[in-house]
Design a protein around this nucleic acid. Structure first.
Length: 491
RNA sequence: GGCGACGUAGCCAAGUGGCAAGGCGGGGGUCUGCAAAACCCCUAUUCACCGGUUCGAAUCCGGUCGUCGCCUCCA
């Protein structure tokens, strides 16, 4: 397996320290709803994690929650609630989103506010070793002391200062020094420390948590490209200075950022679409396919067209997964191995999900073809579910698909004589309702299909087609299979 | 200003020296009472532009134009 590491700037052979891969992915600061840029990042690392497990490694996955910081405090003040309450609200919401996107939960979700003791221990160690200093109740990291500062972002201190957008805090020795412990102002959330009341700086929590839960050296540390500098650079400086061990993380993986129109989607630009909004319009599978159809290190542009295309592709995979192998000749079963091989080769090469996905789509076509001509495809379907479901994390659940259940002839006869348009109208008005309940129309739709089947039998195609067309325009698609009709809600 | 990435069909997007993956869309066909779904065929002689290296370049080198990211909170 080859992985591109930001630190070396090239593809490297992936060799973990032991057979349990230690993976740390930067989590969120819960002060607002998570947006689809977050979805992109966490889907990518979910797939990477699933693939590593698929290859036979054990794995421990840690993701932090930065549940205290300036933005949380400010927002909470605006809303007149406690910072902890705001953080909890959005943390809960974040977990809901992750679950809805079929992202496997981390093994540990440490919270900054739950790890104060470890954070203080690390800061104290850094002070003792001369890498940090206290000033007016805050503690800063002394960047000049970390010889290799800038190695991840591939910059040196000089060129960073040349950027000239740095405001030198008067308490800092050097403009690039960053805060490890921030003295709290009156009324702000505060924790006791050797330097007085305060709260942890943003970067230190990740160092403290990864050291605590994964040890001095991680195998994979990941996050969005926007975290390379300063966040991950600072993590390296803190962690390696504290432990005296290099490297802090063997492989640094960073995903490209989601763009919205011409700009990056970000909280500060306010041009974001939340995960919940996206899920209201598109299935989790569609969002995953959208993300995985581009390489993880490349930027990706959000568009309704791209999501709609992904949804159509997702629908095709769902249908394949739902096809039943009606026996067929096992000896003639289609070979799934070539696809599996292609899939693995693609993923082995720096997690080339677009190519892996291409193999999945080709396999899907092969299965459909086999199904159409009555060949057996049980094993191939199993492979499809294993790869697309298990590794790429697609649910492939056909939602809102219903099978016609036979209706008594007498009931059909009675309904045929009465106003079937009324039935259709009833179905339509329920479908258009805000909090519509599909269950309430199932019986009526089923009855309409039963009537339609009777009409077709009697070759009264005009009315039969009218029923189908009317339901279709209401968002109910009917497929007349050779055995029995299937209907689905299309919107 | 410094650092970096990218520019491939109508749209999204792989490929990084040897005949241009995949998805969506579009056109034609098979199946069907007709549809839908599925399947089959077609849909980039060409990879922003210009020049160079090479037997051979979308892929390497130089230049031009354009887009985006980071350098400041951010997945």
């Amino acid at each position: 397996m080859k992985v591109w590491s930001t630190l070396s700037g090239k593809k490297e052979d992936f060799v973990p320290q032991g057979n349990e891969v230690k993976m740390y992915i930067c989590g969120v600061t819960p002060y607002a709803e998570a947006h689809i840029g977050h979805a992109m990042s966490y889907i990518i690392f979910d797939v990477i994690r699933r693939y590593i497990k698929f290859s036979g490694y054990r794995l421990k996955y840690v993701q932090n929650v930065t549940d205290i910081d300036d933005k949380i405090i400010n927002r909470a003040n605006q809303q007149g609630i406690e910072a902890s309450e705001l953080a909890k609200r959005y943390t809960d919401s974040f977990f809901e989103d992750m679950d809805a996107l079929n992202i496997l939960p981390a093994d540990v979700y440490p919270r900054a506010t739950g790890e104060i003791a470890k954070i203080i221990e690390v800061i104290r160690g850094l002070i003792d070793k001369g890498y940090a200093y206290e000033a007016k109740g805050s503690v800063y990291f002394r960047v000049r002391q970390a010889a290799s500062y800038g190695k991840l972002a591939h910059r040196d201190l000089e060129s960073m200062i040349a950027g000239a957008r740095i405001e030198a805090g008067e308490e800092k020795e050097h403009p690039m020094d960053f805060v490890l412990w921030k003295a709290s102002k009156p009324g702000e959330p505060s924790w006791e420390s050797p330097w007085g009341g305060g709260r942890p700086g943003w970067h230190i929590e990740c160092s403290a948590m990864s050291l605590k839960y994964l040890g001095d050296t991680l195998d994979i540390h990941g996050g969005g490209q926007d975290l390379i500098f300063p966040h991950h650079e600072n993590e390296i400086a803190q962690s390696e200075s504290f432990t005296g061990k290099e490297p802090f993380a063997r492989y640094w993986l960073h995903n490209g950022l989601l763009q919205f129109g011409e700009d990056k989607m970000s909280k500060s630009l306010g041009n974001l679409i939340t995960i919940k909004e996206a899920l209201a319009d598109y299935s989790a599978d569609a969002i995953r396919i959208f993300v995985l159809s581009s390489h993880y290190r490349s930027p990706l542009k959000y568009s309704r067209e791209a999501l709609a295309a992904a949804e159509a592709g997702a629908e095709r995979l769902r249908r394949v997964a739902g096809r039943e192998s009606d026996g067929g000749n096992e000896a003639e079963t289609i070979a799934a191995e070539p696809y599996r091989k292609r899939f693995i080769e693609a993923m082995e090469d720096d997690f080339n999900a677009p190519q892996a996905l291409a193999a999945v789509f080709d396999l899907a076509r092969d299965i459909n073809q086999a199904a159409d001509i009555g060949k057996s495809f049980g094993k191939a379907k199993k492979t499809l579910v294993e790869l697309a479901g298990g590794v790429l994390g697609l649910t492939m659940e056909a939602k809102n698909v219903f099978y016609y259940e036979e209706v008594a002839a007498t009931e059909i006869a009675v309904t045929r004589k009465r106003d079937i348009y009324k039935l259709i109208d009833g179905v339509g008005s329920e479908l258009l309702k805000e909090g519509r309940n599909i269950d309430t129309i199932r019986g009526d739709v089923n009855l309409l299909i039963g009537v339609r089947e009777a009409l077709r039998k009697d070759k009264e195609y005009k009315l039969a087609d009218e029923i189908r067309n009317k339901l279709n325009s209401l968002g109910i698609a009917i497929e007349d299979k050779s055995t029995f009709p299937v209907w689905r809600i299309t919107r």
